[in-house]
Nucleic acid binder design. Structure first.
Length: 319
DNA sequence: AATGGGCGATATTCGAA
DNA sequence: TTCGAATATCGCCCATT
């Protein structure tokens, strides 16, 4: 059966709202309208796209499942590829002679380099590989990886690697995707795992968000709290206290010109002291990617805005 | 599209408590 | 460890070219 029976019908009377491309396909099996250029699912219906059968046991599942992995933005061909495996035994379990293995190796190479990849796709493959590596280092969930992959696709399509490194574009995409899901990473964090310096990363990011319309919300200090706290081995009580402080704060006013990471660092510091789990500013600064001085400045700021009262300056020992 | 100044936020360093 | 001052640097905004 044709493994590539996905594209069923070219729909001409509409264009993709995301990239304006007219290459829309109706996918009858999944009842979706899919943009062939950016992969956007335009019109997802309410029809259940899961298997029509039910599996009551794991064995049933194995026996009845007949479809492959789901389409993924993270594969350059959306997961619809043919791969020549590296197996050293043939279909019947007999060893493959070395001479034939050599032939297969050569076939595999040619296959990879010629058949599968249109010229523009090589960089995409490379980009997606890099993306996956960076995402797993940062522990970023698959949902967001897919979103980052989609952004990367669009960026490549617009030829935005010209004058930039692929790593930079990928890192910027990942950065954007994280922000769009309200689980932002610091630019420092991104640049640490991507070997791209902050400056280039920032530029790449702003270029991407300019050219591709991205709905990127502002980073709120709250978004960092849970991640930073867990990095600092701070308990849920500190986390809650931090949130309390931050809520109190943005009710009043004007944190907007400060870096959110600095504000959250100061709030965490205060909260850790209040809860008797005091951490040195040094550590908090490191985790939050700001300097100690910034923490102190934001701390002053907090002091002025909301009269912080301390439970008698307890000099509790840190951890 | 580059360039440069102004300006506020932040970084770095250092000494005192 | 924390605090604060002095100094340097960064990044954004705006105007100019």
């Amino acid at each position: 059966m044709g493994i590539n029976s996905k594209k069923v019908e070219l729909v001409s009377d509409d264009s993709c709202p995301e990239c304006g491309s007219a290459h829309l396909y109706r996918d009858d099996h999944r009842a979706e309208l899919v943009c062939d250029d950016c992969g956007l699912v335009v019109n997802e219906s309410e029809i259940d796209t899961g298997p029509e059968w039910r599996a009551y046991t794991a064995e049933d599942n194995k026996r009845m499942a007949r479809t492959g992995a789901p389409l993924s933005q993270r594969s350059h061909d959306l997961g619809l590829s043919t791969v020549i495996s590296y197996a050293s035994r043939d279909f019947h379990g007999n060893p493959i002679p070395a001479k034939q293995r050599d032939r297969y190796n050569r076939m595999r190479m040619l296959h990879r380099q010629s058949n599968l990849l249109r010229p523009g796709q090589r960089s995409l493959v490379q980009a997606l590989t890099v993306l996956d590596r960076m995402a797993s280092v940062l522990g970023i969930p698959p949902r967001i990886r897919d979103e980052a992959a989609l952004i990367t696709r669009k960026a490549l399509k617009k030829g935005m690697v010209r004058g930039r490194s692929i790593e930079g574009v990928v890192a910027a995409s990942l950065y954007a995707a994280c922000r769009m899901n309200n689980v932002p990473r610091t630019l420092e964090e991104m640049s640490k795992v991507s070997e791209v310096d902050r400056k280039k990363l920032r530029k790449a990011y702003s270029a991407i968000s300019r050219q591709i319309k991205l709905r990127v919300p502002l980073v709120k200090p709250e978004d960092y709290v849970s991640r930073f706290c867990s990095k600092l081995d701070l308990g849920p009580d500190v986390e809650a206290e931090t949130h309390r402080i931050l809520n109190e704060l943005d009710d009043s006013m004007g944190t907007s010109s400060f870096a959110p990471s600095g504000t959250v660092a100061a709030a965490i510091y205060v909260a850790s002291v209040r809860c008797g789990e005091k951490k040195p500013q040094r550590l908090i600064a490191e985790v939050a990617g700001v300097s100690e001085v910034t923490i102190r400045n934001r701390f002053q700021f907090l002091n002025e805005r909301l009269k912080l009262k301390f439970p008698n300056k307890r000099r509790a020992s840190a951890s």
